[in-house]
């Protein structure tokens, strides 16, 4: 049963039961981005507001499994009020965490290790990589936010 506990850590269940930053923001001035996981029907809507170079507010609505919902909640807590450049770096680090087991297995260069301390509570999601089908659940909110940041900068 240890595998299941790797996946459903207490922090994850907590964010699933009591999601942070749930709701909507008025658009405009905020920006609204929808994300879909066509395989399982999960849908997420991310609202982001920028104040200069800072991601000043974020809200999330939609529905999905405990992994997609808790990942979205953890993400919102991690990025709210942060400089957008730092948010982009966190997105990159998180996505590397989600692919670390698949990359460069026999390359001479070791993949750059992910600094789990820099991820804080987000590191609780690292167990997801042992369940490859669920990686798409964990990355749904992140891909949606990344798309939103791209659209904001255009």
């Amino acid at each position: 049963m240890s595998n299941l506990e790797d996946l459903y850590r207490e922090i994850i269940l907590d964010h699933y039961r009591s999601p942070r930053n749930r709701g909507e923001l008025e658009c405009p001035p905020a920006h609204r981005i929808e994300g879909f996981n066509p395989l399982c029907g999960d849908e997420i809507t991310v609202y982001v507001a920028a104040d200069g170079a800072t991601l000043s507010d974020i809200k999330i609505s939609g529905h999905g499994c405990s992994i997609s919902q808790s990942s979205a909640s953890l993400m919102s807590a991690a990025v709210k009020g942060k400089p957008i450049a730092d948010v982009r770096a966190t997105i990159d680090t998180f996505k590397r965490l989600m692919t670390v087991h698949e990359s460069n297995l026999d390359d001479e260069q070791e993949p750059e290790p992910v600094d789990l301390r820099a991820l804080g509570e987000l590191a609780a999601l690292q167990g997801v990589v042992k369940f490859p089908v669920r990686i798409k659940c964990a990355t749904l909110a992140w891909n949606t936010l990344a798309q939103g940041l791209d659209e904001l900068s255009n």
Partner: peptide
């Protein structure tokens, strides 16, 4: 409970 979580357990 989301069916993904049901099926995973």
């Amino acid at each position: 409970i989301h069916p993904h979580d049901v099926a995973q357990v």
